[in-house]
Nucleic acid binder design. Structure first.
Lengths: 203, 203
DNA sequence: TTAGCAATCCCTGGAAAAGAGGATATTTGG
DNA sequence: CCAAATATCCTCTTTTCCAGGGATTGCTAA
């Protein structure tokens, strides 16, 4: 089985390499530190499995996953991430990933995941699976591009009018985005909105 | 040099072990997955250097760092994290850490950090150092007890009137505290205030 | 002991945001 | 293609916030 990894954290790459190097039936094809070089690699050769971090410098792993699977349907993607944030896991699976492993997985878990995926099954880390079952909180609301933009400017301390000028839209539009943000975050006002946004790393 | 690592991500532990195993003058003492087992280990033997993640399941690495250095002053701590959030880095350094390395550091960087720290110097990852320099206003304003109380309630989304009722003070007093907070944080409005408060871990 | 700060209280007026409606293009996905 | 999502724009009322002031008490550190 040819395995390739996309992660911008050198230590994680080394960690996985070290975990997999003893496995006889696994061939290590190398790694990429970002989405661009991953795609460049894939145009040359295709692994059986890509272990893919969700956070990449140039593109989210969620988007990259989709792109890769569209172009190379024979490649299976296993999502990798530090946190088990339910919305990410769900989006990754929605975009065609065959599995999801948290970075605190053990060697056994990782090998199990690879075996399962190669056998055509779907694999979810124990914690990840639990997350998906308990559809409870911890969810990041799904924001549109514009909303993220507006949110960032609100956090910068700009008023609706200032944001409107900056984005070349009407201040009432900004206000609408603001209301939608409040509603998506279930926040009463700007204070809670920004608190949650920072905590969920939108800002 | 005896090196120990505290990180709940197996892959990171393996990665660092793999990066350091070729270094002749480094003795690998093992690892802990949480703060509790780290402290248990330290009661038995003390490494020269602890590589410590800032996100641990039972306690933040920032707090653990402080505790470890108080109890075992001979031990040097190097902070480890995925993101370069200046507030975390600053807190880690404030709590006595000798260095800070991002998880996308190369083998060279890591060894450089260990060498520097053993030589009694402070080491900051390039990106981390840049963060601290750029954000020279990274200092936490000094708040009074009451201000911290009010700040927390503002972050909860409460209005001046609600806070006044909760704290049994007049709403105009709350407003004064609020104004002092804005001034201490040099924030234009609630949005920036709360953003900074969360980033600087007041909330 | 005196200066400084924390915490409390008070006022006014204007700016901004929240809340509640509704409306219309333009993408985008199935 | 059509429905849904997204982005845009509008009015009106109420509430909250922001920016100026000024003032009293009590504690503490120089």
């Amino acid at each position: 089985m040819k395995v390739f990894i996309v992660d911008d954290h050198y230590m994680v790459v080394e960690g996985i390499r070290s975990l997999l190097q003893n496995e006889k039936n696994i061939e290590w094809l190398g790694h990429a530190m970002n989405a661009a070089s991953c795609l460049a690699f894939l145009s040359q050769q295709q692994p059986d499995i890509i272990l893919m971090d969700i956070n990449l410098p140039d593109k989210s792993g969620i988007d990259l996953c989709k792109e890769v699977i569209e172009k190379y349907p024979s490649v299976a993607v296993i999502g990798l991430s530090t946190f088990n944030q339910q919305s990410f896991i769900q989006k990754m699976i929605d975009n065609g990933a065959s599995g999801y492993v948290l970075k605190n997985a053990t060697q056994e878990e990782l090998c199990e995941a690879i075996d399962a995926v190669m056998a055509g099954k779907q694999y979810l880390s124990h914690a990840a699976a639990q997350m998906l079952r308990s559809n409870d909180t911890g969810e990041r609301p799904i924001l549109t591009r514009r909303e993220i933009e507006v949110l960032a400017l609100i956090a910068e301390g700009m008023t609706n009018n200032e944001i409107a000028q900056k984005l070349f839209i009407s201040s009432t539009t900004v206000d609408t985005h603001r209301k939608n943000l409040l509603s998506k975050f279930a926040a009463r006002n700007t204070a809670t909105l920004i608190k949650m946004a920072v905590q969920l790393q939108f800002v």
